[in-house]
Design a protein around this nucleic acid. Structure first.
Lengths: 361, 361
DNA sequence: CTCCGTATTGCATCCGAATGCAATACTGCC
DNA sequence: GGCAGTATTGCATTCGGATGCAATACGGAG
């Protein structure tokens, strides 16, 4: 099956270090090379490779044939220099948001790609590393930025001074005009809480995410407010870091703070919710949702696993990334557009991890 | 907690559409602008921004102060044009490999970033879309490529003709010299099979991945070979697509092919293994691992969830990406290096989803 | 004080494609 | 056949920074 490793004796020889002054030392073909071979001017070549430019059919044929012969490809770097458009956008994510963003990333890239735009990816260990990231983006003359990491007002100002449109993904900067695409975290939490309370839960625990995560803050705040509005008093709040282990730790912490377990646990994301469920079942022998209801947020893949079947709010990733991409492109093409915020409601998923009120028909 | 939302009334006015012919219409500052303001030549500015170049302290100070005043940043595009080095590499992934690659992606980007290299991300719905992706990469003059999608020999040849180093990530091209970084899939499967057989399993089922996935093929082949070597005859093979649902479907398919369930199921990745477990427990009331052992491959996050606690082989993502990055940089800096393959063994994880032989002390 | 070696700095040119403008070719019409 | 109008094509310049080479400045030795 893995035959063929020994045979095929030739062809390797051809690929050894190409020291011999063969033709291989030649640089990549440029439009001048093509022009020369085709016997036309460089500008003609340039025009043939431009969608809207004027060129006769004969010209096209001659140039294309020469180009193919030379393996010519327009140099996007040079083009970017003269046109002042790199056709690249920066996508910035921070590492902490793990299981959810990959999906987003693929979506964004795909959609940009369909529109002829390339994605320069920036990831940061900590959101504080953004300073240098920012510098990089600017040096690379990106045409726009989508950030799923928080920027300070000063940082945003730097980018805007360079007249680069920025779209915030699931974040926003209070008091400052920015373009953003978000999932309505508070609304989602309020729904979850409403259902839980309506189903008779009285004793609540909340597992919040990292302190520097705006998304987590919004979720926690939404849940707390709704709980207060509904007159619920018995609320324990502990914090985690969005990770599975921290979900387990959080649940055990919750138990230790009270003689009896809570009726319901509201986790700031699905992964921690899963951690809570595992901890509840394994270490305390509690049943989910009979003894304790657990809800999450995000709607990531594992939320659907039968062992968890989470009640959660799913972010409409597809629509959100489409919105982000088209909004960014709008701003790039028309920089004077006034800022716009698009807020999507999440999909409400009545999984089996919580006792919720009957669906209102 | 959320104080400060109402106050802060000013500052918005400053940010409205900057129509007034203020100073804002000015383009980005160039090295010429800086040179002029500092009263020196453009080359001096260029040198100040180069690590190794010669410039007196006084010169540095004057230039830097002028640069700061103007908010100057070297234009990486222009620099790339003249130096023939874009300092960008392409990372290519295909969408199908979902839950696992995100991690890889973040790792790669981070490590490149530490070395002053930016990542242009390319994703493809189907691996067949690679043709156009390839074209894009070449136009953008990337200095190197890491591909986690399969390339044909012809496609590889195109890239190599442009003298761009390529590293295959978990893939390889038989009979052709390429640089690659891989996890040893066969070895991992052989270990799993060995343990399962040693523990007394007799009736096996294999859930393979997508047909066009080389990784899946290697895993399946490894498992099958080892099974044959050990004289196991009773083997059912069904195929999935790496997704959770397909794991569930696969298990139910396995059941339908035989009167009794298998002793052990070998899934080509963790997510399908999880699907199998859920299907076994839920639809058939089978216990895992008492009635049926299930093993996966990859070592993704959910494999550690208590409900599954998979026995699996974890790919050493950190070391693999480090290897890929440093290998690619080596090739970029020394194009004549002879190809190299680095193969890593996976971490053997004895989870609770399978009855394995006692650990050999 | 002069001469030589080294450190700085400026000049001119280059990278590769896009584009305004002018020159030329071609079309149709009278 | 002549002319206006349009379509092609080429010329020259531009984008912003890097770099070889020459010019100048500085420092130390004799």
């Amino acid at each position: 099956m893995e035959a063929g490793f020994e045979e095929w004796p030739v062809s390797k020889a051809e690929r050894k270090p190409k020291d011999n002054g063969e033709k291989s030392t030649r640089k990549r073909a440029t439009s001048y090379d093509v022009a020369e071979l085709a016997g036309v001017s460089q500008s003609a070549v340039s025009r043939v490779f431009q969608p809207g430019a004027s060129a006769s059919k004969e010209m096209r044929d001659r140039v294309m044939s020469a180009a193919n012969k030379l393996g010519y490809r327009p140099n996007a770097i040079a083009r970017g220099l003269i046109t002042q458009r790199s056709n690249m956008v920066a996508v910035v994510i921070s590492k902490q948001t793990n299981l959810y963003y990959p999906e987003v990333l693929v979506q964004l890239t795909q959609r940009f790609s369909e529109r002829g735009i390339r994605v320069l990816l920036f990831t940061m260990e900590h959101e504080s590393d953004i300073e240098s990231t920012l510098e990089q983006m600017l040096q690379y003359q990106v045409d726009g930025v989508i950030t799923a990491a928080m920027l300070s007002a000063e940082q945003l100002a730097i980018i805007e001074k360079a007249e680069i449109p920025v779209i915030f993904y699931n974040r926003t900067l209070p008091e400052i005009l920015v373009n953003s695409v978000r999932c309505d975290q508070e609304e989602g939490e309020r729904w979850l809480v409403g259902e839980l309370v309506a189903a008779g839960h009285k004793k609540f625990a909340i597992v919040s995410g990292p302190e520097d995560s705006q998304v987590s803050m919004e979720r926690t705040r939404g849940a707390l407010q709704k709980l207060r509005e509904l007159g619920v008093k018995d609320i324990t709040v502990v914090s985690g870091d969005y990770g599975y282990a921290s979900g387990r730790a959080a649940f055990s912490e919750i138990l230790s703070r009270s003689v009896s377990p809570p009726d319901a646990v509201i986790a700031a994301n699905d992964v921690m919710a899963i951690g809570c469920i595992d901890e509840a079942r394994e270490s305390s022998g509690l049943r989910v949702p009979e003894d304790v209801s657990v809800v999450g947020f995000d709607g990531v893949g594992p939320a659907r696993f039968a062992a968890y079947n989470l009640s959660t709010v799913r972010q409409p990733v597809g629509r959100m990334s489409e919105a982000a991409v088209s909004m960014l492109i709008d701003r790039i093409e028309n920089p004077d557009l006034t800022p716009e915020k698009r807020v999507f409601s999440g999909d409400r998923i009545r999984g089996g991890s919580a006792r919720l009120a009957e669906e209102s028909a």
